[in-house]
Amino acid sequence: MRARLLFPTVMAATALTLAGCGTQDNTASNGPAASASPTTSGTSTAEQDSVGTSAVPEALRFTGTTVDGRPFDAATLAGKPTVLWFWAPWCPTCKAQGPETAKVAAQYQGKAHVIGVAGLDKRQAMQDFVKDTGVGSFPNLSDEAGEIWKKFEITQQSFYVVLDKDGKAVFTGSLPAGDGLADKLSPLVG
């Protein structure tokens, strides 16, 4: 009988102890993209500080692979506004957004980043989409497992997330044919 009473007490104490082991960012969120969940990299705090990741906003703490198989680390985007364009290869709306998104990427090259995040299909279909729509001038990530989509709480294709230079989401939503994307990015580049 005594063991039954002691077990819940020990479990509660253990849970309280473990809850203090992690850190949590309690800053206000501005839509799904601003509340992106943290990812872990397996490196110590000292290692992170030595490579400057402590200055990387939480929104840009993810890695991936481009549709052509190259590794990608979003930490390299820190310090400049960033557009994340979530698309699917079979989506006609996404295909219509391709030309305007590529135009904005070229217009703001060196001042802001544009990154495509492909999902909901296989890599070959993603590669074909990039080739067919002419969006190969900027990185497009193959997110077959949907990890980046989950991080930003994206539930539909054809969705933009615009982050300011500090990684704060200033716009999340769809832009038919990409119209208005330059208007969203322009005030962020100064």
Rank of each mutant, 00 (worst) to 15 (best):
V104K: 07
P89N: 03
A36C: 11
T23K: 08
P139M: 12
T66D: 06
T23H: 03
A19W: 15
Q157D: 14
R61C: 13
T27V: 12
G134V: 02
V162G: 04
A13D: 01
S54I: 01
A169L: 13
Q157P: 13
G79F: 06
A88E: 09
A15K: 02
M1N: 04
L5T: 05
E144N: 05
E153Q: 15
S35F: 11
T76H: 07
G190P: 03
V104P: 01
G98D: 00
G64K: 06
E58S: 09
A74S: 05
A112Y: 13
A145P: 07
A106C: 04
L163R: 01
F171G: 00
G136L: 00
L6V: 08
I115E: 00
V135H: 04
F171M: 05
T39N: 10
I115A: 04
Q97S: 09
D179Y: 06
A88Y: 01
T82N: 09
L163Y: 05
E147H: 08
G22T: 08
S41W: 09
G173P: 04
L84D: 01
E100S: 06
A106W: 04
E100M: 07
Q127A: 13
P89Q: 00
T39I: 10
T17G: 13
P57M: 01
V83Y: 04
A74R: 03
A36F: 03
P89L: 01
K95Y: 12
D68W: 04
F86E: 00
V170E: 11
T9P: 04
C91W: 11
Q107R: 12
I115V: 14
G64V: 12
C91D: 09
G69N: 01
S41Y: 06
T65C: 14
W87D: 10
Q48R: 15
P92K: 13
A28Q: 07
A102E: 08
P57C: 03
E47N: 11
A96R: 10
T101M: 02
G52H: 13
A102K: 01
A34G: 14
K150V: 14
W85T: 03
E153Y: 11
G98V: 05
I115P: 04
G22C: 06
P8D: 09
A59L: 10
T63C: 08
D121F: 03
T23E: 06
D73I: 00
L141Q: 09
C94W: 10
N140F: 04
V51T: 14
Q107I: 10
K111A: 13
P81G: 02
T40R: 12
A19Q: 11
L163M: 09
F62H: 00
P187M: 14
V162W: 04
T82C: 08
C21P: 03
Y108M: 00
V51S: 08
A34H: 10
D143K: 02
L5W: 15
L77M: 10
Q48P: 03
